[in-house]
Amino acid sequence: MIEVKALVKTFGAIRAVNGVSFTVRRGDILGFLGPNGAGKSTTMKMITGFLRPDAGTAIVDGIDVAKDPVAVKRKLGYLPESAPAYPEMTVEEFLGFIAEIRGFRTAAARRAQVERAVGLTHLASVRNQTIETLSKGYKQRVGFAQALLHDPPALVLDEPTDGLDPNQKNEVRDLIRHMAVEKAVILSTHILEEVEAICTRVIIISKGRLVADETPAQLRARQPGARLDEIFRSLTQSDL
């Protein structure tokens, strides 16, 4: 579903992403791990067509993001880090706008998509509040609702549980697990327990390079008996 081929991105003198390749199939939940500044967000921004790669490309559902970024954007649902949204709009107005721009042009179709997204993310109680008045957890859910509103075949989620309380984290994980049955999901995180909880595969990057691409069980088998964060530390040590 998502095929990432040798992506490279340089900012000034810093090579943020250096030849990262991997594939995500339908039904996969890929945990994207790495220390802060390792290039996770940059890689995701290149997959979603927000940043243009210096070399390499990403192919989503057979479409090359370098050749037809708008078509790729149609296929993807993307939750950017810290879930940006227009603060002066109400939840319903905001999701209505997203639905319209996602091609649901009739009032009935728009309404149906908004209802579905509001239901999935439990936003009904705040639907008429402006986004600037919402708590962090609700803002994150609005970002989520926006990403899955058009029922995309592939989801890219940049730290979807960041800033949520333990109950909300659980809820979001359930939601992701539930949706991943027929979707390809990439989620970045630096919470290692999250990877064990929901991911079917793990990728670790360090200093812009891929250092591991395996199942959580294989990762654990690298150092039997060790905790996950110890394995993580030994793999990304070069960052310290």
Binding site: T48, A71, K73, Y78, P80, P84, I101, R102, G103
Partner: peptide, 8 residues
């Protein structure tokens, strides 16, 4: 970032 990851 939201705007330019929508199909526009």
């Amino acid at each position: 970032e939201l705007l330019f990851t929508l199909p526009v």
